[in-house]
Design a protein around this nucleic acid. Structure first.
Lengths: 227, 227
DNA sequence: ACGCACCTTGGTCAAATGACTAAATAGCAC
DNA sequence: GTGCTATTTAGTCATTTGACCAAGGTGCGT
């Protein structure tokens, strides 16, 4: 990845529709090849970071000819943008699914904290943070990253709004927006630190929160019984 | 920045000491030139990110000949490592200074929160996070980043330890390590979000914390009076 | 089995890169 | 001034890069 010598062409999808159906009717084969490139790009993001991705390395990783990158995507920038798109769709979807599920908030919180470990394990975090780092130097990417963050913020807001009712928390003392921001930012902070191999204090913090939520859960049940 | 074709030479300082004194007696001129390169590197980190730095762009930014990079530092990797070194020394120093100052914790907290804005404004955050992102793909850099984080953790621990006494906080409910981790991670999270242009909820959170600390400060004074 | 749109290959190209160096120059000790 | 070392300049070099394309192959509809 470096500054392109010439501005890249708009995108492959624009030049290739010589009377051919747009996104709607892409051939399965085509979709397959595109997916292979996007998968390979994610693997490279994980392994070498965005700065280490070049058309040729990408093609090698995908086991495909390097000319295809240009044919299918028009440019690296476009490809990376599609990686971002696909990745974040999955991210938001998962998040919504999790919090929309039935059951007490405590369970959802624990599931979310499990994701923290799983995502580190699977390299999900690394890929997502590489995309973010790309965004720091690319307005178009940054815009999309910000959108995802906003969507994430919304999902957590909804979940925590319900949770505060559920546990009868005082909204004067803990304004919803502040709580959401605290939860969101400390999550990002933890992930960021882990990327640098730092884990000190994480389990202490998570344990303290878990204990606190557990207590709230117990009190909730007691309230129900005495009613 | 890309994989070097050959492993770079150890460092400029090793080849240049033809009987000449090591670091101790570097000529002022030399130190000056080195500083110019390091300054230029920071400016480029801020403006284009680590992936966009090349020896030639760096030399241009510094207004110096590109051959000098090799002469003085031996390689880009070495130069970037020195950028990190210098940068983080300043970071820790400032942090220690701030919390070591006299006065109530509330004041220190407010100073720290002001830094949050100042550092974004000045580009300090961007530089620091670019260095972190570099570390995600470079063990040597990552190690140093982790060290800085550890040092930062220690400083906050000391400060918050004192603060919890000062405000009489219950260490069973808020274990020191958990609190430190929460403060550290949400700080990093806020900075990270701001790099992507996200600011929603930040002021709400900071205001809520400020109000809470203010209340603690008032109660502290009341305690003193009634004693 | 023919036509034709689509796909794939294997390249070219100019520009850029990190590493490295010969030669000129500057600055200082004497 | 002379001599000598440290610094600086202006390159070279082998590679790599993103962009781009010609030519041939493939497979499907008919």
């Amino acid at each position: 990845m470096q500054a392109p010598r010439k501005p890249p062409r708009r995108s492959a999808s624009q030049r290739n529709n010589n009377g051919q159906r747009q996104r709607a009717g892409v051939t399965p084969a085509r979709e397959d090849v595109e997916r292979q490139f996007l998968d390979a790009a994610e693997r490279l993001l994980l392994r070498v970071g965005y700065a280490g991705i070049t058309t040729r390395k990408l093609a090698e990783e995908a086991g495909l000819n390097h000319g295809l990158v240009h044919y299918y995507f028009g440019s690296m920038q476009e490809l990376l943008l599609q990686v971002l798109e696909r990745f974040t769709d999955r991210l938001i979807e998962r998040q919504e699914e999790m919090y929309a599920a039935p059951g007490p908030f405590l369970d959802k919180w624990r599931a979310a904290m499990r994701y923290l470990d799983e995502d580190e394990e699977s390299g999900y975090s690394k890929v997502w943070y590489e995309l973010q780092a790309m965004g720091w130097n690319d307005p178009e990417i940054r815009k999309r990253v910000a959108n995802v963050d906003r969507a994430w913020f919304k999902v957590i807001t909804k979940a925590l709004d319900k949770a505060m009712d559920e546990y009868g928390l005082d909204r004067t003392q803990f304004p919803l927006e502040a709580v959401v921001t605290l939860v969101g930012t400390f999550n990002e902070g933890i992930t960021l630190q882990r990327l640098s191999g730092i884990r000190s204090g994480h389990s202490a913090l998570l344990k303290a929160i878990d204990r606190w939520l557990e207590e709230l859960e117990i009190r909730k049940r007691q309230r129900k019984r005495t009613q």
